[in-house]
Design a protein around this nucleic acid. Structure first.
Lengths: 341, 341
DNA sequence: CTGAAAGCGCTTACAG
DNA sequence: CTGAAAGCGCTTACAG
């Protein structure tokens, strides 16, 4: 069944394609009578404008691209949900690509989206991304770009983030407030800004409380597909290396849950022998036992705000107005549960 | 920065647009010399074909649509991951929409995707969907359609599923084998085929083992955003209504985890006082305590297979060949853990 | 109020 | 081997 075109409607009604087009779009310079006729026929024929042709003419696709490190991930899937919902409200569709924490893939995917001529791009960076030319290219092409969560400070585009340093400080301070004096940190990968900031927040809280900062208490995890296992492994190492640690601040809930599993296995009581604070407030953190104290990170909200910003920029560009990149910082909060005293 | 067009390349080299187009696509009837010249210039100018124009000419978008009930969901996010990965391999992009378990939204979204002229559509139905005309419309337009997980038997398209009845039978049989004699069932919503099938598998296992089927032991949950709370609520009701139940087979892990939380709260020991089997093998089921016995449901694999089938059908339609709808059934397995004896 | 015309950027059947 | 021409289905500035 071939789709109906403007031409067919025009022929049927013995009027021109131009008039049909204008009638359907409610141009003021078409008579009411003609409009009514056209609209009725369009409806009975189930006319749908050919998006390909519309895109070609209007030079926009009403489609945006999203590159995300991991899809099966409590926080990121919440962000996706927020973006998709907000975009749909504004008549935009979202193409989603997973970078798998790989710089190479991420680069290719940005290229794919550019080829596709999406109206804008949203991204949370892969752990492996240290070069940002692919992102600068997006901006050079005049396409709006919004980064969220894992951002690059150096790229002059809009960003939606939380104050990772402050949140990490809060988490560590909570451990100190509840009596911990020797606190380890399972940090994220080396490159991402957010794992750097969380580390710095941890360190600052120690120093502000006159606790020594000991690098041997900092363990690294990639926080990729293997997060849970990384938690297990790091906890094992930690227990092996040190016998005086009484608290851990961990970069991500899933890693923390892995760590707590290992602690339980080795008979280390949480929170009495070892207190644990995670980050991100994954759903399962509330249902495990002991439940996990963590930092709430508003995923859906982040997705919504990021899309709203992108939308503004798309509109601005359409009107040939300059874009003013914004950094939007969302609030976080400490959620106290059973894994701390 | 305006994108480069074929015309610009043609003018620069003093040849025709047609030749440039053919050279870039390695048509055999273009001289090697011309091809080399064209390709080199295209590269230095960073030429990207305008997808809008290509789409208009070729009548395909290399884009498919996916409608999914919930994004923040262990099983579905795995399916998304599988689809997106497989599609990318074949040069297809995926537009994702969330129906939120609403028939109305689902219908609108199918329309959106049809308007967008995606090359094919994949869907897992919303709980609320009882009318299938929006899906039949897809087929009538000659667009490939593949359903997965939550399907409608009556729609003559390809489907990727598991044998829900068999899996539920297995789960219930396991409860019986480990000594349960009065087994409740927290089923899914009334309409979806998979919750009907799981219910039927449960019932059949009872009857095959000469255990009476008692409708008052069957509780319903929508399995939407509130899954966890539904588990809590249903467990509360169950404990209130009956004091002789010793096992529950539950439609989804997340509901089961809610139920176990309530059981723990009320001091009911799992598995000794009450054994529990879930469905779907969510990651958190392995890390809670006691860990949850469940049925493994291969999400990524389901996504991949569903895309592969869609791809075949897209190719077939392109060649004007008929589509032979297939039903692909994936294997499941029982994963025994601590919530059963 | 209506329509003829140009054009978006490509592809492809056809002529030479 | 190369190119002129038609056309995909729309939009919009312009003429009448």
């Amino acid at each position: 069944m071939e789709p109906v075109t403007l031409k067919q409607i025009a022929e049927e009604l013995n009027i021109s394609v131009a008039t049909v087009s204008k009638a359907l779009k409610d141009y003021p310079d078409v008579s009411k009578k003609t409009k009514a006729l056209v609209k009725e026929l369009a409806k009975t024929l189930n006319y749908k404008p050919n998006t390909f042709a519309v895109n070609l003419r209007t030079r926009e696709s009403k489609t945006i691209g999203l590159v995300i490190p991991v899809i099966v991930h409590h926080f990121f899937s919440n962000v996706i949900k927020g973006i998709v919902a907000q975009a749909e409200k504004k008549g935009y569709l979202v193409i989603i690509l997973q970078s798998n924490e790989s710089y190479e893939l991420e680069k290719k995917q940005i290229d794919l989206l550019l080829n596709q001529r999406v109206d804008g791009i949203m991204i949370s960076l892969a752990n492996g991304t240290a070069d940002f030319s692919h992102l600068k290219q997006v901006l050079e092409l005049g396409k709006p770009l919004v980064m969220f969560d894992k951002i690059a400070k150096i790229v002059p585009c809009s960003k939606v983030v939380i104050d990772d340093r402050k949140a990490a400080y809060l988490a560590t301070q909570h451990l100190i407030d509840t009596g911990c004096t020797r606190i380890a940190h399972f940090r994220g990968a080396l490159l991402p800004q957010n794992s750097i900031d969380r580390f710095l927040g941890y360190k600052k809280a120690l120093l502000d409380n006159d606790l020594p900062y000991d690098p041997s208490l900092v363990y690294i995890c990639e926080c990729d597909d293997r997060s849970f296992e990384e938690g297990l492994d790091n906890a094992k190492k930690l227990l092996n290396d040190h016998d005086d640690v009484d608290g851990i601040f961990i970069n991500t809930d899933l890693v923390a849950i892995g760590a707590m599993t290992e602690l339980a296995k080795q008979g280390v009581a949480v929170p009495n022998d070892m207190a644990v604070v995670g980050f991100s407030n994954w759903f399962m953190s509330s249902v495990i036992s002991p439940s996990l104290t963590t930092i709430n990170q508003p995923g859906v909200e982040m997705g919504k705000r990021a899309f709203k910003q992108l939308y503004k920029e798309i509109k601005a560009i359409k009107k040939n107005k300059p874009i003013n990149p914004k950094v939007i910082t969302l609030e976080t909060e400490l959620i106290k549960r059973e894994s701390t005293k």
